[in-house]
């Protein structure tokens, strides 16, 4: 207790000092100006991946805009549970925010965590990538129609697909597509993999027939002439991969889903800080640098402000719950 009082005292005097310092520089903004020290941006996925890259470009733009370091901190593992929980349990003071991903609408249905979209203060939706349908270069399917026909006519379990772990977003994409075709979710057998890259290696080596990860993740193997993208599960084509058709225009199946990424903070963040961040995020989203970076990697950009992001997540959460129950992936 003694240390607590001392800490509070010190912190208070420190704040006073800092405020005094800031006051000299900018009298009008002195009181409670945010941010006045470095901000942590927690990323639940590893350095070098798509989420990490997106978070880093956003952070660098926020840093330039708001004049304080925005440090990306990778808290990986546990299928995303570790990082998502670090964001949710941080002090809601605006100095710890993070990039949350589609898994927040899935993990609690699997019984991995109690966290759900409502455990956060949503700030902005920044990106969404649709799943693709990728086959090996030498696969005997000319296009998505031929593949769909083969899947439908052959017995269940003939084909094998991969892209992520059991119950991951790309697995659900496959299940959703199969169900939209009027088949059972396990008509194509799912081979769990440790991410999209090993799944693409399996595809090239002839270990699996289909990979349903996003096209940017499949890109290296496609460029190396080891794989072909047959379709994307999106409402419209991706301008970066304009030759890849959608399911709707080829099969007449109106199924689309996606792995989205957005910025959020712990629940109960002060409204003025959330507002400041949301405004800065909007400026970052509209920045040409952000748009150019995202399109160079083939990542889709989607904007949603705090309210839109919240309702987007609530809707996604419900849809994922239905899909996972139907596929037998929900637990508890």
């Amino acid at each position: 207790m003694a240390s607590f009082t001392r800490r509070t005292l010190l912190a208070a005097s420190g704040t006073a000092l800092a405020t005094a310092g800031a006051g000299l520089a900018a009298p009008a903004l002195a009181q409670g100006r945010y941010p006045n020290r470095p901000v942590q941006v927690i990323v639940p996925w590893g350095a070098g991946g798509g989420t990490d890259a997106t978070a880093r470009i956003v952070s660098s733009l926020l840093e330039r805009d708001l004049g304080q370091p925005f440090n990306v901190v990778n808290r990986t593992g546990g299928s995303g549970v570790v990082g998502h929980s670090a964001i949710a349990t941080a002090q809601p003071d605006g100095y710890t925010i993070g990039m949350i991903t589609v898994e927040i609408t899935m993990m609690h249905w699997q019984g991995l965590t109690d966290l759900r979209p409502t455990s956060y203060t949503p700030l902005a939706l920044m990106n969404s990538d649709p799943p693709g349908v990728t086959v090996a270069q030498n696969a005997p399917f000319a296009d998505i129609r031929a593949l769909a026909e083969a899947i439908r006519t052959r017995p269940a379990g003939t084909f094998r697909a991969s892209g992520t772990g059991q119950g991951g977003i790309w697995h659900l994409a496959l299940v959703g597509w199969l169900q939209a075709m009027g088949l059972r979710g396990d008509h194509v057998r799912w081979v769990p993999s440790n991410g999209a890259a090993p799944a693409m290696q399996e595809l090239a080596a002839g270990g699996v027939d289909i990979v349903t990860c996003s096209i940017p993740e499949a890109r290296a193997m496609i460029d190396a002439n080891r794989a072909r993208a047959l379709a994307i599960m999106a409402p419209a084509r991706n301008p970066m991969f304009a030759q890849v058709p959608t399911l709707n225009e080829t099969l007449g199946i109106n199924y689309s889903t996606g792995a989205w990424r957005g910025i959020a903070g712990p629940r109960n963040m002060p409204a003025e800080i959330a507002g400041a961040l949301q405004a800065a995020l909007k400026r970052a989203y509209d920045n040409r640098e952000f748009q150019e970076f995202m399109s160079s990697r083939g990542f889709g950009t989607v904007w949603g402000d705090a309210a839109q992001f919240a309702s987007f997540m609530a809707e996604g959460d419900r849809a994922m719950g239905d899909a996972m129950r139907a596929a037998g992936l929900a637990r508890g």
């Binding site: 912190a11 420190g14 704040t15 000092l17 800092a18 020290r37």
Partner: peptide
């Protein structure tokens, strides 16, 4: 961790 020196650093 910044701890005590949080507001000074």
């Amino acid at each position: 961790p910044r701890g005590l020196l949080d507001s000074v650093l």
